[in-house]
Write a protein that binds this DNA or RNA. Sequence first.
DNA 1: ACCTGAACACCGTTCAAGT
DNA 2: ACCTGAACACCGTTCAAGT
Lengths: 242, 242
Amino acid sequence: VAQRDPFETRVVTSRRGGPVKQPLSRDAIVTAALGLITSAGLEGMSLRKVASALDTGPASLYAYVDNLQELQALVLDRALLGVKTKGPWPGRDWRGRVGALLGSYLKVLSARPGLAQLALSTIAVGPNAMRISETLLGLLAEGGVARATAAWAVDLLLLYCTAIAAEKGQLHDGPDPLERVGRAVATLSPEEYPHIFAARQELLSGTGNERGAWAVAVLLNGILRTPRRRGEKRSRTRGTSK
Amino acid sequence: VAQRDPFETRVVTSRRGGPVKQPLSRDAIVTAALGLITSAGLEGMSLRKVASALDTGPASLYAYVDNLQELQALVLDRALLGVKTKGPWPGRDWRGRVGALLGSYLKVLSARPGLAQLALSTIAVGPNAMRISETLLGLLAEGGVARATAAWAVDLLLLYCTAIAAEKGQLHDGPDPLERVGRAVATLSPEEYPHIFAARQELLSGTGNERGAWAVAVLLNGILRTPRRRGEKRSRTRGTSK
DNA sequence: ACCTGAACACCGTTCAAGT
DNA sequence: ACCTGAACACCGTTCAAGT
């Protein structure tokens, strides 16, 4: 909410009469829903809450949206509008640009924990999801990854980033899960779980960003070395740097 | 339900009197809940449905379980009991054994789609989750992966397998999502999305198992080549085969 | 201590009735 | 066509009252 707006909610009031209710529309519904999921998490976005945010009853929404699942898909794609696929990344090679794109994706989802949870249970086929996949496919092609391999790799990369964001999101509600893991690990007997005991420090270390960057490097290194078809060769890298 | 049991539900009846209600217990509750999630999916397992499966009211469960979230965590760990961490895998090297273990994990989750969805939103800290992590850490150590790297790698491997199972699980309810993706891709203009258009065949190809096996290979290849600390060296492989 | 009926504050979705 | 009040069939959780 911009600070210069004195109203708690964005109700437009006319000089002549009472509050002016803006007409319902698919767009207004998605906007309201995205606002709710951003501020109140996944369970803060219900059809009933979206409806009352728009000053109407839940039944009214069904004129514009088939059901909750469709609304969720629309909200996800609207949020993905914020993912930068062609920011100015001068001098970065294709790997750097993949990292930047996935970083932007992660940032968009991490800023809205509920959205990341939603993304894990929604197949993204909206225009913005397509734009992201298209760009990733292009970057992998630039890196010489064969098309068949790249097709599966895009899935793998996005899936992992989504999961990272969702995991991070869980940190915000309830008791800190990292603490829970810490306590669970602390009670284990060194005899029964020697490896976990030995690695107890390392298991809990690292920020989300550190882990994310490492994971993307793992995925790219693995993708480059794991052709989908036996004998499939990586073509010469082209356009690696400017 | 075993076929020799003529009763629809497992109600024990005594010769002398009416049906004998087995006493409530944490264990009985978890068993009933696992049965429900197995047969009816994630949303088929509610506290109220578990209660009525046990012939009682929902309030009664709160004597044994703090809330729905705790019950879900218990159900997950109970199911993970079925993951084989030390099956006889003669002659397989550490990579093969990692593959077998993750395959078992995937199988357990894939057989219960609701459980995979649940696993994505539950941090598994139960004894069976610990057993799986312990074994994976041991196998990676056998492969010469440094401890710090292995600690994060375990997370990455399990997370991906969980996500694969959850995605596969979505296939079963609603319209086939692969078909939805196919239709979405089919409507894209080759001009705007040249890479997706070129890869449209490859994007949809491959069974879950093929994709899973490829992904695990990607992850292991990447993990072996991406030390967490700069300059961290992989120790000589020991015990690669018998 | 364990169990429970009833209530509370929610859900998504449908449908007949309005305009 | 768009909108809506009311209802339907559900949720998780709490609490006073029972034994």
